[in-house]
């Protein structure tokens, strides 16, 4: 079958379509540029070289503490969320109650961030739980869970369950079948969910800031500094680092999923 050459009207319509896509992408990506420019603005040899504002990050002990908290919470969220999401996705397949279970897990996605923060804050307050890295982690895990669950469900959907039945027929029990047959097949989904959770943790502000008490993460520190004294070159440097870290993690996800597709 030969495809007829496109008429000029079709070509114009196609140009319009891709022009629209390109325009939207420009609008979406443009906000990543200014922090980078700002972090290098005014850099000169007298002012301490190109990376002066990056070095200034380390002059602020509050910020160092914030970075430490961010890394700790990120690690907790990235480990706990995929495991919870895997259990939920397995329960979903096992019990066939998608409306109930998914409705529950996806709920935090639809609650405004401020409201979820308020709910968690009064919850911990009424129960007498002091704000800590753990309470901050819980809030972020609930935020990352819907995304992680969807990632794992997508990967599980491409896993053929007859392999499990084959394992049962061959005398394997449920756990061994899962561990030795299914898990290796969906491992990439778990890594993807972990990377996703880490990204969401690094970029979460408002829920965390409401339950944080005296501590700060990098993000909540940025937000409170903006409201109190405005943004400094060091904070722009920090934003640049956060953007770079997020892009690097996304690139990591691409590399891992690519490897899955290639035999």
């Amino acid at each position: 079958m030969t495809v007829p050459a496109p008429t000029s009207a079709q070509r114009a319509a196609n140009g319009l379509v891709w022009g629209f896509v390109a325009l939207v992408l420009v609008f979406l990506y443009a906000p990543m540029v200014p922090p980078v420019l700002r972090s290098f603005a005014g850099a000169s040899v007298e002012n301490g070289g190109l990376f002066a504002s990056y070095r200034a990050i380390f002059d602020d002990p509050l910020l160092i503490g914030g970075i430490w908290n961010t890394v700790m919470i990120g690690a907790i969220v990235a480990v706990v969320t995929p495991v919870l999401a895997l259990a939920i996705a397995q329960a979903l397949r096992e019990w066939q109650k998608p409306r109930l279970i998914l409705g529950l897990v996806l709920l935090p996605l639809f609650v405004p961030g401020v409201s979820m923060g308020v709910a968690m804050a009064v919850f911990f307050k009424v129960l007498g739980v002091e704000p800590s890295l753990l309470t901050m982690s819980v809030v972020q895990i609930l935020w990352a869970l819907p995304f992680a669950t969807l990632v794992i469900m997508t990967v599980m959907a491409s896993f053929d369950e007859t392999y499990l039945e084959a394992a049962y027929v061959l005398g394997s029990n449920r756990f061994a079948a899962f561990w030795k047959v299914e898990l290796p097949c969906i491992r990439q989904g778990l890594f993807g969910a972990a990377a996703f959770s880490l990204i969401l943790s690094f970029n979460e502000t408002i829920r965390t800031s409401i339950v944080q008490g005296g501590r700060n993460t990098v993000q909540t520190y940025l937000w409170s500094q903006y409201q109190q004294v405005g943004l400094s070159p060091a904070l722009y440097a920090l934003m640049t680092l956060l953007i770079v870290a997020t892009l690097a993690l996304m690139a990591g996800i691409v590399v891992v999923t690519r490897r899955r597709q290639l035999p």
Binding site: P35, L222, L242
Partner: peptide
């Protein structure tokens, strides 16, 4: 879809700061 999701994952408060800059 990946191209559309990358900006969504960068903290939207940082992106909002940037708009006030631009």
């Amino acid at each position: 879809l990946f191209l559309f999701s990358v900006p969504f994952l960068v903290n939207f408060i940082i992106r909002t700061f940037s708009w006030s800059d631009i």
